[in-house]
Design a binder for these strands. Structure first.
Lengths: 110, 110
DNA sequence: TCCATATTTCAATATTAATGGAAATATGGA
DNA sequence: TCCATATTTCCATTAATATTGAAATATGGA
């Protein structure tokens, strides 16, 4: 059931706080941001943010890495591309006519 | 609050039945499909489908038109483009570097 | 080691959403 | 007009999600 993970990704973004977090991480790029910095920037309580970051992570939209005492979160573009591909799949009877892509600026289209 | 309508669009898609409906309408293209045909194709009870179609309509993702006794639903691509634009906004500090677009095949990129 | 910082987990509450059957509404054909 | 078809509305039940404070866990510096 591929649709399950797609639904979870869409559900993860379908919430004010998480949408703001995701956009912030898209803007931050591959360097990412520490959880505390996100909490501070967006004014979301740490425990609440932790819950939302887990949702985004489980949906595959963000990844995290440990750096000293910090946990750095960053956007995971591949998953967004999976979502877009799923939405456009079989458009016009199977011939994908609209290449929709979502990539970090640091990795321009080749 | 632009985020409100974006969240509602994402929430509309973040549900198995509605995601299936939306994809079916993307595949159907501008001609669209009657509510009954959607119900039959996807095996969703009419009352349930009506509820979901309303959600998709309120989110701006689909539109409907009356044709005789039928109500024909079709995907409204502009709203999907709004969602994609919102997600990529300010990526890399304000310079949109990734033109992401979602269009019906009948209206190719010019 | 001990403490401050960073983040997550837990628990309780409140809100919102999904479902299908029955009834209501609307349209077109006999 | 009357009936069959097409869709929506209403209702009741069931389930899932968001929130915050307090406690737990983990890491690094003094």
């Amino acid at each position: 059931m591929e649709s399950k993970i797609i639904v979870s990704a869409l559900a993860a973004l379908a919430q004010e706080s998480r949408l703001a977090v995701y956009r912030l991480l898209v803007q931050a790029g591959p360097d990412g941001l520490a959880a505390g910095k996100i909490s501070e920037t967006l004014g979301i309580a740490p425990s609440s943010l932790s819950f939302h970051l887990k949702e985004l992570t489980h949906a595959g939209l963000v990844t995290s890495r440990n750096e000293s005492r910090f946990v750095i979160y960053s956007a995971h573009y591949e998953q967004m591309n999976n979502v877009l591909a799923y939405l456009t799949e079989n458009c016009c009877g199977g011939n994908p006519c609209i290449p929709v892509q979502f990539q970090p600026c640091e990795v321009p289209n080749k």
